[in-house]
Computed example of a mutant assay.
Amino acid sequence: MLGTIFAPESPWWLVRKGRLEEAKASLLRLTSPGRVEFDVDQAITLMVVTTENEREAGTGTSYLDCFRGVDLRRTSIACCCWGIQILSGTGLRIYSTYFYQQAGLPTEQAFNMTIAQYALGIVGVFLAWTTLPRFGRRTLYLWGLGILATILLVIGSLGVAKAKHPADMSNKLSWVVGSMLLVYTFFFDVTVGPVCYSLVAEIPSVRLRSKSIALARMTYNILNIVSNIITPYMLNPSAWNWGAKAGYFYGGTCALSFMYTYFCIPEPSGRTYAELGILFQKKTPARHFARTPVDLPDVRGVEIPATKEA
C-alpha cells in the first residue's frame, strides 16, 4: 500500500484525461536517467496521436467494447496469454510436494525437492530479466511452450514406465520424475511465467488496457479454479490415481497452447502502441507482425491538442 501511494500515475491515463503536463512529469519519473534518452514532448505527442487514432477507429472505453470489432481479437489474445499459464501445466508445480510424494519420493525428500523447485524458479526469473530485452515475447512463448510440452510428455511416459518396473527401478524413476519437474519449473520461470505479463499489458488497445487486463486475469482465475480442483484428483491414489501420468494431460493442453501461440499471438516487441494498433486494424496475421512495415506520421513539431476521455 505504501509503495502504491508513492508510485507515479500512468502517463497514458493522464494523456486520456488531457493532463499532459502531469503526464510528462510521470513519464520522466518512470524513465531511468542516463540510460534512456528520448524527447519527452515527442513521446507525449505520440501517446496523444495513438489515443486519438483509437478513438477515431471506434475503440470505446467500456467492458462491452472489449468484445467489439478489432478489440475482440486483442482481448481474446490477452485472455488466452494468461490462461496459457494454467494450461501449460502449472497445476503440477502448485501441488509439487504432493506430486513428488505420489511419484514415489519419501516425504522429507519431496519437501526438499519443493524447496529446490522454488529456488530454481527464482533463478529462472532473474534470467528472464536478461532474455526479455534480447528475444521477442512470441519467440520466448513458443520456445517455452515447446520445451514445457516435451518435459510434461516425458514425465507422463516415466509415470507409465514406473508402473511397469520393479520397486528398485521404480524408486530410481521417481527421482527422474522429480528432476524433470525441477527442469520444468526453471524453463517456465524463464519463459511463459514472466513473459505473460508483458504480453497481457502490450496486446490490448490503450483505451481498453485496464479492462482487458481485468478480463484476462479473470480468465486465469477461472482456469486456476478448475486446475486446482482436478489436479488433486489426478494425483490422489484413492481418486484417479494418475500420478506422474498426469504429465500426459498437461502435456496435451500445453501442446494446444503452443499451436494457439503460433497462429494467434503476435510479436509486440519493438513496436509502439501506435504501430500495434495499425497492425491490428489491418488484420495482420500474428506470424507477420514482426516483419510487416508500418508507416507512422512524423509527430515532431505537431501541436499537442487537449484531450478528454469520452
Results as ranks from 00 to 15, higher is better:
residue 42 Q to V: 14
residue 67 F to R: 03
residue 138 R to N: 02
residue 81 C to I: 04
residue 232 P to V: 07
residue 88 S to I: 14
residue 190 V to N: 01
residue 51 T to V: 13
residue 14 L to G: 03
residue 149 A to I: 02
residue 112 N to I: 13
residue 70 V to H: 02
residue 184 Y to H: 11
residue 8 P to Y: 03
residue 73 R to Y: 04
residue 115 I to F: 09
residue 97 T to L: 13
residue 53 N to G: 12
residue 280 F to C: 07
residue 296 L to R: 07
residue 166 P to E: 14
residue 270 G to Q: 10
residue 54 E to G: 06
residue 169 M to D: 15
residue 219 T to F: 00
residue 149 A to R: 02
residue 90 T to W: 03
residue 264 C to T: 14
residue 166 P to W: 01
residue 173 L to K: 05
residue 59 T to G: 00
residue 69 G to I: 03
residue 157 S to Q: 13
residue 194 P to C: 11
residue 213 I to N: 12
residue 164 K to A: 15
residue 193 G to F: 02
residue 109 Q to S: 12
residue 90 T to K: 05
residue 223 L to R: 05
residue 93 R to Q: 14
residue 11 P to M: 05
residue 128 A to P: 00
residue 61 T to K: 03
residue 147 I to C: 06
residue 44 I to D: 02
residue 53 N to E: 15
residue 269 S to M: 09
residue 256 L to G: 01
residue 137 R to L: 03
residue 188 F to L: 15
residue 270 G to A: 10
residue 28 L to D: 09
residue 107 T to K: 13
residue 104 G to N: 02
residue 169 M to F: 05
residue 129 W to G: 09
residue 202 E to Q: 13
residue 282 K to I: 04
residue 199 L to G: 09
residue 14 L to R: 03
residue 204 P to I: 06
residue 283 K to V: 05
residue 18 G to S: 11
residue 133 P to R: 01
residue 28 L to F: 04
residue 23 A to V: 13
residue 156 G to H: 00
residue 252 G to V: 08
residue 264 C to P: 01
residue 212 S to Q: 11
residue 132 L to V: 15
residue 41 D to A: 09
residue 137 R to Q: 08
residue 154 V to S: 11
residue 65 D to R: 00
residue 137 R to W: 00
residue 29 R to E: 14
residue 105 L to E: 08
residue 308 K to Q: 10
residue 300 R to Y: 06
residue 71 D to G: 00
residue 25 A to H: 03
residue 69 G to T: 05
residue 292 T to A: 12
residue 285 P to H: 08
residue 80 C to A: 15
residue 27 L to H: 06
residue 273 Y to H: 14
residue 36 V to S: 01
residue 34 G to T: 09
residue 198 S to N: 11
residue 153 L to N: 08
residue 63 Y to M: 15
residue 41 D to R: 05
residue 158 L to G: 01
residue 118 Y to W: 14
residue 263 F to P: 07
residue 296 L to G: 04
residue 251 G to F: 05
residue 287 R to G: 00
residue 221 N to I: 11
residue 189 D to I: 03
residue 99 F to M: 14
residue 194 P to D: 07
residue 38 F to T: 11
residue 90 T to A: 11
residue 208 L to Q: 03
residue 158 L to Y: 05
residue 167 A to F: 10
residue 228 N to M: 12
residue 184 Y to Q: 04
residue 310 A to D: 14
residue 131 T to A: 10
residue 287 R to Q: 13
residue 238 S to P: 02
residue 198 S to K: 02
residue 167 A to S: 13
residue 15 V to N: 04
residue 52 E to R: 15
residue 100 Y to S: 08
residue 198 S to M: 13
residue 157 S to H: 10
residue 210 S to T: 13
residue 35 R to V: 15
residue 97 T to G: 13
residue 89 G to D: 10
residue 104 G to W: 03
residue 266 P to Q: 06
residue 99 F to Q: 10
residue 121 G to C: 15
residue 227 S to W: 03
residue 100 Y to C: 12
residue 254 C to E: 01
residue 146 G to C: 03
residue 155 I to H: 06
residue 11 P to D: 09
